[in-house]
Amino acid sequence: MRGVILVIIGVVAAPLLGGLIAGVDRRLTAWFQSRYGPPVWQPFFDVAKLFAKERLLVNTWQVFCAYIYITAAMLSVVLFFLQSDLLLILFVQAVGAIFLVIGAFSTTSPFSQVGANRELIQILTYEPLIVLVFVGIYLATGSFKISEVYSHTSPLLKSLPLLYIVLCYALTIKLRKSPFDFSTSHHAHQELVKGFLTEYSGPYLALVEIGHWYEVVLILGLCSLFWATSWTGIIVLVGLTYLCEILIDNVMARMTWRWMLGSVWTMGLSMSFVNLIWLHGG
């Protein structure tokens, strides 16, 4: 019974939460730029509008890929709420991310091709980092299962401080925030038209957007694991992290993929390595 409720929460509440987070994000960004900003419900209006638009396609693979993307994104969140295996969640999430790229590649548009190539670089950049974060969690708790993380008595942040920073790198990339938003970018900024989302339009863009909300919830959920011992801890940690993300987004310029791959791997891999050695030694 508890499982069923969790599944329902995962399927229904996650996108609502994700949409709300996107709305708050836009509001805060506007505030940082001394603007007024759209209502917090704005993302829901956007998606509803997109659903009611005409279907305009380059080929039908896009549709196929958008559906697989949202299925996988939903499934990964559900697995998270069912406290499943972390690596498995990452792999299921990857199904969605990769099909989205394949969909972008399947169109003949040069803009979305370039975007798709760049999205692959982004995946290449964050995937190993997330795996290493999970390995850190495994070394700290003795298991890859989320249920074990919850039964851990002290906050993981204490033993995995550097890995949390590494996770934040991945979070920034996944949220499509500057300086890592060159495959496509969040709301008002543009990148090579709209990067790999150029050819997704109307209802299919709406599906992609909802899938993105699921992913945001998933990755913030992963952040929450680092202070899973108390609700206040979770809220403070995730809230602060997100605030930092918005701040970084607003103060940073967009960089090139070479810079991203180089700097994130150097920083991320060395920080994870150091943190993992601490765990191994201590």
Binding site: R35, Y36, H187, Q190
Partner: peptide
């Protein structure tokens, strides 16, 4: 953007 308007390309 108050009105939800986004400049898309």
């Amino acid at each position: 953007e108050r009105f939800g308007i986004i400049n898309v390309g």
